[in-house]
Computed example of a mutant assay.
Amino acid sequence: MVNRMMWIAWPAFLAACMLELLVFAFVDPLELQWSGQALGWSRQTVYTASFFAFWLVSMVACALTTLLRITPAEVNECPFDRGQRPAGCPGESGFVS
């Protein structure tokens, strides 16, 4: 489970870093507007908020990719140890998926 979380968080972090660099190479945070009004945030606040927004969106994309990569055997695997499996658990009748 920790490995899967790292498969999601690390590439998303790198993607957020690249997006931050690309976006703010062309956009001045002090000129951002919301509904025609100046945003009124400092540069550092805009950089921080946008980085976490980019990271969140990238994590959702990476999580979806990780979810779609799961094999049917992993989905159908019984989560219990062999001695604690209930009667209907896959792999209990001698058939191992």
Rank of each mutant, 00 (worst) to 15 (best):
V57M: 13
A73Y: 07
D28G: 07
F54E: 04
L21W: 12
R43S: 08
W55Q: 06
L22Y: 13
V27G: 06
T66Q: 14
V57P: 03
S58K: 04
C78R: 00
L39G: 01
R69P: 04
A53E: 13
F26T: 07
P79L: 05
Q44A: 07
A49H: 03
L68G: 14
R69E: 13
C78V: 01
T45H: 02
A53D: 10
F26G: 09
P90H: 00
L30D: 14
A63P: 05
P79S: 04
F51D: 01
S50E: 02
A87P: 00
L21H: 11
P86I: 00
G88P: 04
G88V: 04
L56G: 11
E31N: 12
V60N: 07
D28Q: 08
C62H: 09
N76I: 05
A38N: 04
V60D: 03
L32M: 11
T48P: 00
T65N: 14
C78A: 06
G88H: 08
G40F: 03
A61M: 15
V27K: 08
F52Q: 08
L39Y: 00
E74M: 14
Q84C: 10
D81E: 09
Q44E: 11
V57H: 03
E20M: 15
E77P: 02
P29C: 03
V57W: 06
Q33S: 12
V23D: 01
F26I: 10
L22F: 15
M59C: 15
S58P: 06
S35R: 15
C78F: 03
L32Q: 05
S58T: 06
R82M: 09
S58N: 07
V75W: 15
A87Y: 08
L64Y: 11
C62W: 08
A73Q: 13
M59K: 06
G36H: 03
F52W: 15
E74G: 09
E74Q: 15
A53W: 04
L67A: 13
F80W: 10
V60Q: 08
L39D: 00
F51G: 02
D81R: 08
Q37I: 02
S42K: 00
T65V: 14
C62F: 12
P79A: 03
P72R: 11
V27I: 14
L64Q: 15
T65F: 15
W55F: 15
V23Y: 07
G88C: 05
A61H: 04
